[in-house]
Simulated assay, not measured.
Amino acid sequence: MPESAATAPTPEPFRSSIMQIEPQWIDYNGHLNMAYYNVMFDRAIDEFWLELGIGPTYKKERHGSTFTAECHVRYLREIHLCDPVQILVWLLEADDKRLHTFEELRHATEGWLSASSENMSLHMDMNARRVAPFPSDIQQRIAGVAKTHSALGRPEGIGRSVAMPSKR
């Protein structure tokens, strides 16, 4: 159904550019090596940070950046050479110094879920090399995105931990 002027667009997570699996990323098992899932998640976050105004120009001009404090990756389905992938990013929560994100790596044409990554990123004052609050204009931009993303359904897998299955 075409969108009318009276209908607001449906909120959706940030969508990265479509990425291709590089041949050197394939391991001896014939699928994407686990390390390169993180490379692709990181590339998608870099694209998302541009939307938030905290990319390379921000670092150069305002001496701020982000560091990953925690990351939890789930590998759910194999990805192979020539599979196009796209990453969806949710900004789950944010405060003046932290960004809680969740990412899904999906097959770009078939849509199935291959992996997810849940992350906590810290805002850094790069001159002091310490955690510091975002500038107020950036906090406002982040708050707007977080509000939009809060209207989305929360993806499955948030808050998971690594543990052996319990025995009954």
Rank of each mutant, 00 (worst) to 15 (best):
P2C: 01
P2D: 03
E3L: 15
E3D: 07
A5N: 04
A8M: 07
A8N: 09
P9D: 11
T10I: 15
P11S: 04
P11F: 05
E12I: 01
P13I: 01
P13L: 09
P13D: 04
P13N: 09
F14C: 04
S17Y: 00
Q20Y: 12
Q20G: 11
E22C: 07
P23Y: 01
I26L: 06
I26A: 12
N29L: 13
G30P: 13
H31G: 07
L32D: 04
L32G: 03
N33D: 05
M34T: 11
M34F: 06
A35K: 07
M40Q: 06
M40Y: 12
D42Y: 01
D42M: 01
A44Q: 09
E47M: 00
W49F: 15
W49P: 01
L52K: 03
L52V: 03
G53Q: 08
G55H: 13
T57L: 14
T57Y: 02
K60L: 15
K60I: 10
E61Q: 15
R62L: 13
R62M: 11
T66E: 04
T66P: 03
T66S: 14
F67W: 13
A69V: 08
Y75E: 05
R77K: 13
R77I: 03
R77W: 02
R77E: 15
E78Q: 15
H80N: 13
C82M: 12
D83L: 09
D83C: 10
P84V: 11
Q86T: 08
I87F: 05
I87G: 04
I87R: 02
V89W: 01
L91H: 10
A94L: 08
A94P: 12
D95H: 05
D95C: 10
D96S: 15
D96Y: 01
K97A: 13
R98D: 04
L99W: 02
T101E: 03
F102R: 02
E103C: 15
E104T: 00
L105H: 04
R106D: 06
R106L: 12
R106S: 01
A108I: 05
E110Q: 14
G111T: 08
G111F: 03
W112N: 10
S114K: 01
S116Q: 01
S116E: 03
E118V: 01
N119A: 08
N119Q: 13
M120F: 05
M120Y: 03
S121Y: 06
L122R: 08
H123M: 12
M124S: 03
M124A: 06
N127F: 00
A128P: 08
R129W: 11
R130H: 12
V131C: 12
A132N: 02
A132C: 07
P135M: 10
P135S: 09
D137N: 07
D137M: 00
I138C: 09
I138L: 13
I138M: 10
R141G: 00
I142Q: 07
I142T: 02
A143I: 02
A143C: 04
G144I: 06
G144E: 14
V145P: 05
K147M: 10
K147N: 08
K147I: 06
T148M: 14
T148W: 06
H149D: 13
S150D: 08
A151V: 11
A151C: 07
A151F: 09
L152I: 14
G153T: 12
R154T: 14
P155H: 07
E156C: 02
G157I: 06
G157Y: 10
G157E: 08
I158M: 07
S161Q: 15
S161L: 14
S161A: 11
V162T: 11
A163S: 14
M164V: 12
S166N: 11
K167G: 06
K167A: 08
R168A: 12
